[in-house]
């Protein structure tokens, strides 16, 4: 059996008196898409931010490729090839696409200056692959459409050869066509052997894209099921009732 790319074991994190994540265990295999579902405040985003290094868990362990790993900052996560595409996109609106793509990992000249020409060239290359319509390389990303902004965020993950990709509502701000583009990309990346955590409220989309789904409620995992074993209604009732109908049966 293959080693999981990511294992999060018995993770807990409290904010003040609130247990945002309560003893959660979850794993992810290469070439797999695992969906996280649940109400707002169920703890999905918090759980994922622990993996991406934005928060630090109170207790629990993270194992990457079968090795116990400490992730205490976004930099640690990146060093372990974990890339995150946030709900809020995490782009600096006043900078252009290339500066955003390489933010925190700038290409430099031998003298240590930022090599803007090379960054722009690399950005053109990867954009030609991901989104051929992308032309506004010189403009601040605030001038881009939602889909174009999303492709900058995705390009960042792809360029730096992520092995684990975390997508927090990647299609929330997108139109129909752009949503399709992201869906195609997820399928493509999956084929290349990446592991993807996907957070979304759209159960139908999740049924199509994911291999497994985990439903969270009040900081705990209600259940993790393979999508072919459950119906959309099963999932909905897990989200709403906080009970796994299959476990009860």
């Amino acid at each position: 059996m293959t080693t999981p790319l990511v294992q999060m074991k018995n993770i807990s994190l409290s904010f003040g008196g609130v247990r945002a994540v309560d003893d959660v265990s979850i794993d992810l295999y290469p070439g797999e898409v695992v969906g996280l579902l649940g109400h707002n405040g169920a703890g999905k985003s918090t759980l994922i931010k622990i993996l991406s290094g934005a928060y630090k868990a109170d207790s629990g362990e993270i194992w990457i490729n079968g090795k116990k790993t400490e992730i205490t900052s976004p930099r640690d996560a990146r060093n372990n090839s974990i890339e995150t595409i946030y709900q809020t996109l995490a782009l600096a609106d006043n900078l252009d696409a290339a500066s955003n793509l390489f933010l925190g990992r700038e290409l430099t000249t031998p003298l240590g200056f930022v090599n803007d020409s090379r960054q722009e060239a690399e950005t053109r290359k990867i954009m030609a692959r991901l989104n051929p319509n992308f032309k506004k390389l010189k403009e601040p990303v605030s001038a881009l459409s939602g889909g174009q902004r999303q492709s900058v965020a995705i390009a960042r993950a792809v360029y730096f050869k992520a092995r684990v990709l975390i997508m927090d509502e990647p299609t929330a701000a997108l139109g129909v066509h752009e949503t399709k583009m992201v869906a195609d990309l997820i399928t493509e990346l999956k084929k290349q052997g990446l592991g993807i955590f996907l957070i979304s409220h759209d159960t139908r989309e999740m049924m199509e894209l994911c291999d497994r789904v985990s439903v969270m409620k009040n900081g705990q995992v209600v259940g993790t099921e393979r999508v072919e074993d459950v119906t959309e209604d099963d999932i909905l009732s897990m989200i709403i009732m906080g009970k796994n109908p299959k476990a009860a049966a």
Binding site: S52, A54, S73, P74, R75, R78, T84, Y86, T88, L89, A90, L91, A92, D93, N94, L95, S99, N100, L103, G104, R105, E106, T108, G112, F113, V114
Partner: peptide, 21 residues
Amino acid sequence: TRLGRYIFATGGNPDAASLSG
């Protein structure tokens, strides 16, 4: 320089800057 890039990135979106390490 990176310093300058980070100054402007932080000004544009402080959260994005810190999430970028």
